[in-house]
């Protein structure tokens, strides 16, 4: 009898307040999404430095434009400036939450707009250690979440949680995210391959706040543990809400992107 009361008393507070690890993981993702909502549109300059195991480097430069889409994945346009032989090549994507993304590539030498398969999510972006899916917009519904623990990274407190992709053709079984408690942006992400072996680690830094609300990193460094290659992605000239519209993210806009 006493034992039963004791058990009930022990369980009671849990039933009322305790969150499952899944719920807590989801809550963190929802909060991060909420804090970043409403950015509208964003332009930035990107420099990618690819480094192989021998330390040889090669540089890619591109311009990126993003249009926030309510209730779906964002639209993106990327224009390549370097290396010189791909200058003017442009990539248009309409990302979707669970459905396959729509992607078009513009080949300036032929003046050809080519719709391409979106199965390449796991494929490398411009030969770098970033996969297409690493650079796509992180919509809440794309993953199942699991809160793991709290941790501190370089003096910054972080939630650590796991995200398992719900969408087709991902190259990962899961990723583990260190999300800053202060700004709700990822500080570090570990990616586990299809065999659930640690494949890559991404570390983001130099976060700055724009329009008094939106945090963006200055750098993202991706290290591939299996090939020993790495890619440093540097962002500059972030411009929010410059008035981009659907028209700036069309097949016609690809052709005049330059």
């Amino acid at each position: 009898m006493n034992k039963l009361i004791l058990i009930i008393m022990c369980l009671l507070p849990l039933g009322v307040t305790a969150q499952t690890a899944e719920e807590k993981g989801l809550e963190i993702a929802v909060e991060a999404d909420k804090r970043d909502a409403g950015f509208g549109d964003l332009s930035s300059l990107l420099t990618m430095t690819l480094k192989n195991a021998n330390g040889d480097t090669s540089i890619r430069k591109m311009r990126s434009k993003t249009l926030e889409v309510q209730g779906d994945g964002d639209k993106g346009l990327t224009i390549f400036d370097k290396p010189a032989d791909v200058k003017g090549t442009a990539f248009l994507s309409f990302t979707h939450i669970l459905e396959a993304d729509d992607q078009w590539l513009y080949l300036p030498a032929l003046k050809r707009v080519k719709r391409i398969s979106s199965k390449n999510k796991s494929g490398p972006f411009m030969g770098s250690e970033f996969a297409f899916e690493d650079l796509a917009s992180r919509e809440v519904e794309k993953y199942n979440y699991l809160y793991l623990k709290d941790d501190v990274i370089e003096g910054e407190e972080a939630f650590v949680f796991e995200a398992r992709p719900n969408y087709k053709y991902s190259g990962y079984t899961r990723s583990v995210i260190w999300m800053s408690k202060r700004i709700y942006q990822p500080l570090k992400i570990e990616f586990y391959d299809r065999k659930n072996v640690l494949l890559k680690t991404m570390v983001a830094g130099g976060y700055q706040q724009y329009l008094g609300k939106y945090w963006r990193p200055a750098t993202m460094n991706m290290v591939n543990h299996q090939t020993k290659k790495e890619t440093l992605l540097e962002f500059s000239d972030y411009q929010f809400q410059t008035g981009l519209s659907e028209r700036d993210f069309s097949k016609a806009s690809l052709k005049r992107a330059k």
Binding site: A100, D102, R115, I116, S117, S118, K119, K168
Partner: peptide, 9 residues
């Protein structure tokens, strides 16, 4: 006409 159905074009 092009139909882009996952890995099939």
């Amino acid at each position: 006409i092009q139909a882009t159905l996952d890995e099939w074009l």
